[in-house]
Nucleic acid binder design. Structure first.
Lengths: 211, 211
DNA sequence: ACATGCAGTCAGGAAAAAACTGATTGGGGG
DNA sequence: CCCCCAATCAGTTTTTTCCTGACTGCATGT
């Protein structure tokens, strides 16, 4: 099985490469830190499988998977990610990923996942799978919620560290209204307390931008 | 050279382990995902070197380095981190780290770093070194500030989304004292308001894992 | 036309948190 | 020995949050 790796951190990538190469029947034919380069690599090498981190520079993992599925259908894509938000898992699988491997997982999972891919099966790390089997009520409603327009604006300003008063001024509305928006969002997201909302705001607002 | 690894992500850890074991004269005698367990491992194994991520559960990397330097001076500690903020780099080195290796770095750096450590030299990844050669005067006071011990603990708990009351309980002190610590930090960092502090706390990555 | 529901706007008042002021203790260094 | 800083806390005031409504448009379905 011919394999291409994509992860922004060279050291991590090199480590994963070693792990893969130690497995029988696995041939790592390329690696890259970059989404665009990944597509070029796939074009050149036509690997059987791509193992990719979702957070890639120049082209994020989800888009990369879609491109691969569209232009190089012979190549399967499996996610190898540090994070496991439901939204990401679902987006990846919907885009055509053949598996989702968490870096939180044990090393043996790598072998299981690659074997599964060889058999055209789908592998999901434990702790990831629940994102796909809907019945988890305990899983927070945070994911896959689309907030109304103004609520999103408020959220974005919260993520920038603005106070309620500042937000009110910036948006030209009363502070009371901002409070209402916040309360509605907390309700919709199943969060309790302003700090939890702020945490959520910063996490989701920091998407993609990291120095 | 006997080596212990500490990284919260098993897959990454396993990969790095392979890379280390492929080098001559390196013997990986233990690995863990956890700060407290790291100390126990060091006590049992007395390794020559510990290679650790800074963001560890139960005991963060900086504190772990300090403990190791204090209680097990024969063991050196080298940071292997995904991030490279100046403040973290300086804090690590000040705590007695013998090197700072970025996961953004190339895989060969691992060999260079371990060789350097064997020769009792200090290795810094390119792109990390600048944090130490102070010439860049950052505008904000936010960088290059080392907060006192308890203040850092408070900050870390803030980043984890804990409320003042929760922090007070967790630290076994009065809520009033927590407020004082917060106020001192805002003063020291030139921040105004609790939300700005929280933003800072989350952004500087004192957050360990999802609660 | 009418009810229904949602998004957006706001207020009043109680409750909680934060901010300000000031005070004590215990180490370390000059 | 004295001074400073880290750490601890209380009292008081100010600000923010939280809860309970309430009114307006606008779109939808009946």
């Amino acid at each position: 099985m011919r394999l291409v790796l994509a992860d922004p951190q060279p050291l991590v990538r090199a480590g994963i490469r070693r792990l893969c190469e130690a497995l029988a029947g696995i041939d790592v034919v390329g690696e890259t830190a970059d989404g665009q380069q990944l597509l070029e690599l796939v074009a050149r090498q036509s690997p059987d499988l791509v193992l990719l981190e979702l957070q890639l520079p120049t082209l994020n993992g989800i888009d990369a998977i879609q491109q691969i599925r569209r232009h190089y259908p012979a190549t399967a894509a499996m996610v190898l990610s540090a994070r496991g938000e439901s939204s990401q898992v679902r987006a990846a699988l919907k885009s055509g990923a053949v598996g989702y491997l968490s870096k939180q997982g044990e090393a043996v999972e790598l072998e299981l996942a690659l074997k599964a891919a060889a058999r055209r099966q789908i592998y999901l790390s434990p702790g990831i799978a629940h994102s796909v089997v809907g019945q988890r009520k305990s899983a927070r409603a945070e994911d896959s919620v689309t907030l109304p327009r103004r609520q999103q604006q408020v959220l974005s300003l919260i993520a920038r560290g603005k106070s309620t008063k500042e937000i009110a001024n910036l948006m030209g509305i009363s502070a009371k209204t901002v409070e209402t928006h916040r309360a509605r969002m907390m309700d919709a997201l199943g969060l309790y307390g302003t700090n939890a909302l702020m945490r959520y705001a910063i996490r989701t607002g920091l998407e993609g931008a990291e120095g």
